[in-house]
Design a protein around this nucleic acid. Structure first.
Length: 631
RNA sequence: GGUUCCGUAGCUCAACUGGAUAGAGCAACUGCCUUCUAAGCAGUAGGUUACAGGUUCGACUCCUGUCGGAAUCACCA
C-alpha cells in the first residue's frame, strides 16, 4: 500500500571511482541507478535471492534485513541461521558465500563481514550519494494521498473540573497521532465528545447555587473551568460532612451516602435538567460556557485544536433505536424485568446490559448511538478513540456489539488505549486533591524553561540578542516541548510515572536536546548563507562512516513514520528523532562543516545539515512540538 | 474468584515482533570549550530481563505454572 512512490529508478551520471573496479561489471555501472532507501532494500533482497538461486539452487521467498549493530561495520545485516538446516552448511560459510556473491554481482555492495551467521553489508559511497540525492528532493516527508478518512477522538473531558495531567497524555497522543496519520496520506478529522451533562455537573451546579453568590470568572479571577472545579470540590466537602453526620446519628454508611441532602438535591436537579426545567438549564448553560472558555484557553496554550465537538447532551439519548434493532435481529434479548442484554460469552466476554428495565440508557447505549452518528457524519474508514486503559473492556464490548450488528465500519474502529500517569505518591485522585492540574503544570514547566534558558544565555552572553517577545516565545517552546516529549516518548499502553522533581528534563533524551540540535544546525546554515555556500552532493565521492550513519538515519524517516502510524505509537517517531539528533551531534563534534577539507565535503555536509534540520522540524511538528532557530 | 495489561541497570525508559556481547537517558566517576552554540561530545562503571520449567540453531520476546503490581468484571460515566 505504502509503496511505489520511491521505486522508480532514475538514471544519472557515472560514478568514476568505482565503475572500473571490476571489469565484468562495467556495463552495469555505465549507468548508475539512483537509489532511494527503499530500493536499496529491494536491490539487496533481490540480490540475496539471486545468490541463493545461483549458489545453492534454492528459491527463498522471505528475505528480511535488519540494521547492523553499532559495534560492527556495515549498515544492513542478513541473518542466515534460518537456512542452515536446509542448506546443510555452516552459518559462517553460507554468509561468506553470499557475501562474496554480493560484492561481485550487486552493484551497490562495497564489502562485507561475516560474524557467525550474521552477514554485515557495507554499501558503496555511490549508493549513499544516490540516497542523499533522492532525500534532497524532500518528497519523503509525506506519503501519497490515500483517499481514506480517519476520525480521531481525544481529550473528551467532563465539564465539572479542569484538565489534569492524565488529559495531557491523552491530548498529546491524540493530536500527534492525528498529524502522523495526516502525514501518511489520510484525511484526518479531529474531534472530542464533551461530557457536559449528568450528575457530576449537577453537583457543581448545586454547590454554586448554594455557595456561589453569583461569582463569575471575572469577579473571582479564576479560569472558568477552575471556578466550576472549585464548586465540585465544595460539593464533595459538603457531601462528606452530611454523610458523616448521618453516620454519627446511627445510619449505616451505604444508606447515609444515598440519603445525604446534597446528593438528593443534585439528583433532583438532574431530573429537572432532563425535563428541560428553564432555570436549571440556564444555570447549566452559564456554567458550561465558562468551562469551555477555560478549556479553550488551555487548548490554545497547548497548540492543539479540533475540527468538531460533540456534546453528550446531544447524544445521550441516542442508541435506543439500535437496541430495538438488536432485539428485532435477535442479537439482544430481554429479561423478564424488561431490561435488554447481549450475550458475548462466545466472544470471550460476558453478558452485558444495553438498556435498563425502566427503558433508560446506560453508557454503552449512547456509545452505540454515537458510533452510528459518527459514521453518518463522516463515513470514515477508520476511527481512533484515544481513551485510558481503564476502559479496555468497555471498548471490547462496544466493538463486539457493533460487529454483531453488522456495522461495516466496525472493522475500522480502534481503541488507542494508554496507561495511567502515576505520581510517586500513587494514583491521582481528584477528590483527594492529588491531581496534577494541567494549567499549573504548564506554567511550572515554562517557568522552569525560563530559569534554565536565562542561565544558559547569561553564560553565553547572548541574552540581549533576543527581544523580550522572542524570549517569551522561546521559554514557552522549550517548556511545552519538554512536557509534550516527556509524555509522548513512552509507549502509550504502558503506565508511566510522573515525578515532578525530575520528570521534565532538559538534558539527554528530552525535547530541549532536540531543539538545541536544531538550533545549532540553523546557526551553521545561517553562516553558510552569509558566505553564499551552497548545499550539494554532487562533487563528493567517499563518505566518512559518520556521514554514512547520518544518511542512513535520514533515509529511515519514512519507515519510522509508517511504523508510528501502523502501531498507533507516536513514541516510535520520538525515538527516531532523538536517535537522529544523537547521530548528528557526534557528526557535528567530529567533523568540520564550514571548515571542511575541501569544498565538495563542505557542500555535502551542509546538505546533511539542512536535511537533518528539516527532518527534525518535520518530525517534531508531527508530535506537536515546535523547534527554535536560535536558543 | 474470572478476564486483560504490566514486571528489564539505583531511577525513567528502549530493544525493529524469535537474532549478535540486552541498549539509551538521568544519577556517579574520567577526560574535552584560543575551531561551526558544552542544553553538547568521548569514555568508565552499573544486568541471573520477577521466578521455575518448556518449545529450537537461538527466548526480554512464544507456551505452561508461580510470585508481585494495576485495571476491569455496576441497572456509574
Amino acid at each position: 500500500m505504502l509503496k511505489n512512490c520511491y521505486q522508480n529508478f532514475h538514471f544519472v551520471g557515472v560514478q568514476k571511482n568505482e565503475s572500473f573496479i571490476n571489469g565484468g561489471l562495467k556495463f552495469f555501472l555505465i549507468l548508475q541507478a539512483k537509489f532511494s532507501a527503499m530500493n536499496i532494500h529491494t536491490t539487496l533482497t533481490n540480490s540475496i535471492q539471486q545468490a541463493f538461486q545461483e549458489i545453492f539452487g534454492k528459491k527463498i521467498e522471505n528475505i528480511t534485513l535488519q540494521a547492523t549493530k553499532k559495534e560492527f561495520e556495515g549498515t544492513h545485516t542478513f541473518v542466515v541461521f534460518p537456512f542452515t538446516k536446509e542448506l546443510g552448511e555452516k552459518p559462517a560459510e553460507i554468509a561468506q558465500k553470499i557475501g562474496n556473491f554480493l560484492v561481485e554481482k550487486c552493484p551497490i555492495v562495497e564489502k562485507y563481514n561475516a560474524v557467525q551467521g550474521f552477514l554485515n553489508i557495507s554499501l558503496k559511497s555511490s549508493a549513499w550519494l544516490s540516497v542523499i540525492e533522492q532525500l534532497a528532493e524532500k518528497k519523503h516527508f509525506t506519503l501519497p494521498e490515500k483517499n481514506l478518512k480517519v476520525v480521531v477522538e481525544y481529550s473528551s473531558p467532563n465539564t465539572n473540573k479542569p484538565l489534569h495531567l492524565g488529559h495531557l497524555r491523552n491530548i498529546f497522543l491524540g493530536f500527534a497521532i492525528s498529524r502522523i496519520f495526516s502525514a501518511c496520506g489520510y484525511r484526518v478529522h479531529k474531534t472530542q465528545i464533551i461530557n457536559d451533562r449528568g450528575i457530576h455537573i449537577c453537583k457543581s451546579m448545586l454547590a454554586y447555587e448554594l455557595l456561589g453568590n453569583n461569582e463569575t470568572p471575572e469577579s473571582s479571577g479564576l479560569k472558568g473551568d477552575h471556578l466550576i472545579g472549585k464548586y465540585y470540590v465544595l460539593f464533595d466537602k459538603l457531601y462528606k460532612e452530611q454523610v458523616q453526620q448521618l453516620v454519627a446519628q446511627g445510619v449505616n454508611q451505604e444508606e447515609a451516602e444515598k440519603k445525604a441532602e446534597v446528593i438528593q438535591k443534585a439528583q433532583e436537579m438532574l431530573v429537572k435538567w432532563e425535563n428541560g426545567d428553564k432555570e436549571v438549564v440556564s444555570l447549566w448553560k452559564k456554567l458550561n460556557a465558562w468551562v469551555y472558555e477555560g478549556f479553550n484557553a488551555t487548548y490554545a496554550k497547548l497548540g492543539v485544536d479540533f475540527d468538531s465537538v460533540y456534546y453528550e447532551s446531544d447524544t445521550y439519548l441516542l442508541g435506543k433505536d439500535i437496541v430495538r434493532e438488536g432485539l428485532e435481529k435477535g442479537i439482544f434479548y430481554q429479561k423478564p424485568d424488561g431490561s435488554v442484554w447481549i450475550d458475548l460469552t462466545a466472544e470471550g466476554l460476558d453478558q452485558k446490559l444495553v438498556l435498563r428495565a425502566d427503558g433508560t440508557s446506560v453508557y454503552i447505549t449512547q456509545d452505540l448511538g454515537t458510533a452510528d452518528l459518527r459514521y453518518k457524519d463522516h463515513q470514515m474508514d477508520k476511527m481512533i478513540y484515544v481513551v485510558g486503559n481503564e476502559q479496555d473492556y468497555h471498548f471490547k464490548v462496544l466493538f463486539a456489539i457493533l460487529k454483531k450488528l453488522g456495522r461495516t465500519y466496525a472493522e475500522g474502529l480502534y481503541h488507542l488505549s494508554y496507561g495511567m500517569v502515576e505520581l510517586p505518591t500513587g494514583k491521582m485522585k481528584s477528590r483527594e486533591g492529588t491531581v496534577v492540574d494541567a494549567d499549573d503544570l504548564i506554567e511550572e514547566v515554562i517557568n522552569l524553561a525560563k530559569t534554565k534558558t536565562l542561565e544558559k544565555m547569561q553564560l553565553a552572553g547572548t541574552e540581549n540578542t533576543f527581544s523580550e517577545v522572542e524570549k517569551e516565545k522561546l521559554f514557552e517552546m522549550i517548556g511545552l516541548g519538554a512536557l509534550k516529549y516527556f509524555l509522548l516518548k513512552i509507549d502509550p499502553h504502558k503506565k508511566m510515572l510522573y515525578n515532578p522533581e525530575e520528570s521534565v528534563s532538559f538534558e539527554g533524551d528530552a525535547a530541549p536536546f532536540i531543539q538545541y540540535t536544531h538550533a545549532r544546525i540553523c546557526s551553521v546554515l545561517r553562516k553558510a548563507q552569509e558566505n553564499k555556500i551552497e548545499t550539494s552532493w554532487k562533487n563528493y565521492t567517499y563518505l566518512h562512516p559518520l556521514e554514512i550513519s547520518l544518511v542512513y538515519q535520514l533515509s529511515e524517516y519514512t519507515t519510522a513514520l509508517q511504523t508510528a502510524a501502523e502501531k498507533y505509537a507516536p513514541y516510535i517517531l520520538a525515538q527516531y528523532i532523538y536517535e537522529l539528533c544523537k547521530i548528528f551531534s557526534t557528526f557535528y563534534a567530529e567533523l568540520s562543516i564550514l571548515k571542511a577539507e575541501n569544498s565538495a565535503a563542505m557542500n555535502f555536509r551542509l546538505l546533511l545539515c539542512e536535511l537533518t534540520a528539516e527532518t527534525i522540524r518535520e518530525g517534531m511538528y508531527l508530535l506537536g512540538i515546535e523547534v527554535p532557530e536560535r536558543m
